[in-house]
Design a protein around this nucleic acid. Structure first.
Lengths: 224, 224
DNA sequence: AAAGAATAATAGTATTACTATCATTTTTGA
DNA sequence: TCAAAAATGATAGTAATACTATTATTCTTT
């Protein structure tokens, strides 16, 4: 028996649901590979079509444009992370332990999850580090937001902020701290690899150090 | 008598120094206006040329491409902030007070500085919030970094991290905390205006709240 | 007044970001 | 199982972008 996890996506993100066909799944799979490899700016539907062995026109039947496709795969990742958090903190009662687990999920590299056949979460995590904020750092963020495109991100933040409040019901900035954890984890990983003088981490024991830094930041702030 | 501050820029950023001519200064001035108004993605040299009343070819004599121009204005801002920090923390001996001033400089909106005639720092700050990370979140970050394009950002972080160490010589993550302060300030401001459910701030007393949040985060972490 | 530098005017190329049309293949459901 | 519908492929075309090249004009400097 093969278990498959399916993340429910906002239909505004696509024209035709990519989960419903082989071509659709290939669009997702090869997009992740190409964006991770060459970056979002260099990514075009023409190159994607060529990699898949289909035509540009066919890709356009699934996604309006490459930005929507980026938001799709990023939202997918937020949904998947939410599932990971639910799963891995299940049955844990101590909120401090829970928060520590959550931070680990948010701040360290992931392995490919075999429960999702056409998505490589490890590549996706690398995309999130470099391209994650480009989903909303646009001049049409308002329009996108009205279409609920960022709901999975908001949901994730809400879940994390609730755990923060369990740790300290009087903490004044649970949502900001949640979004801070997520974004700082990405930025510090990026800096460590690309602009190391902006961090205090070296490439041995890398993830552990970043984890320690974020844990220190978070726990000293909420337990003070 | 009119005092003018001049920020020294890395010559790799431009083909012809924009400070040395009227056209060059107009390129900077109108770039800031257009990027702030429509976002970096919608910004083109053709539109810029039209706004200035010159031609695309003339703009290309100053800057290789629009990304270099973005990095130019962003670097300019880092240089200007460094000057602000030097200036505003001069003669202050208590490092905790110093750090508090630095955080305020990094995390709140700025007013247009009359000492720099063709640069509107207030607009520039808004550009930094939305486009700042796009300077380095590219697939050519390594090449750009080797050309020292991010030196002003690194210098700024080093200065801030030194102040952090003055506060607590045993603090383990001064560089990471410095880059965290800068980036989180921008992100939280962006979220507050565009995706408020990712923050705990509302639009009254906005800057004060973000400042409080960052101060809480920083000081609880380094004084613990 | 001449030389040199900067700018303007214009044109052109390759790529990107799409849209449209029509033929072919695959799916489906009566 | 056969016809209709849906999905895909093949091809073409457009407007905008991101440049490069060429020549004419104007502006500076000695």
């Amino acid at each position: 028996m093969k278990l498959e996890v399916q993340i429910i996506m906002n239909p505004s993100l696509y024209l035709r649901d990519p989960e419903q066909s082989e071509l659709g799944k290939n669009i997702i799979k090869f997009s992740i590979q190409l964006i991770q490899k060459n970056g979002f700016e260099a990514f075009t539907f023409k190159k994607l079509a060529k990699a898949i062995g289909t035509t540009e026109a066919s890709v356009y039947r699934y996604f309006e444009n490459k930005h929507k496709l980026l938001v799709y795969i990023i939202s997918w990742y937020w949904g998947w992370l939410q599932f990971q958090i639910d799963y891995q903190t299940n049955n844990i009662t101590d909120p401090l332990v829970k928060l520590r687990i959550v931070i680990k999920i948010l701040a360290t590299n992931v392995e490919d999850d075999k429960m999702t056949s056409h998505v490589d979460e490890s590549l996706l995590h690398q995309i999130l580090i470099v391209e994650g904020t480009k989903a909303f750092l646009t001049n049409h963020v308002d329009k996108d937001n009205k279409q609920q495109l960022f709901q999975p991100y908001k949901d994730l933040c809400r879940i994390v902020s609730n755990i923060i409040l369990e740790c300290n019901p009087n903490y004044k900035y649970p949502h900001s701290l949640a979004s801070t954890i997520i974004e700082i984890a990405h930025l510090q990983i990026f800096f460590m690899y690309n602009l190391p003088s902006l961090t205090d981490f070296n490439k041995t024991d890398k993830e552990d150090q970043i984890l320690e830094y974020i844990n220190n930041l978070v726990f000293s702030s909420i337990t003070k």
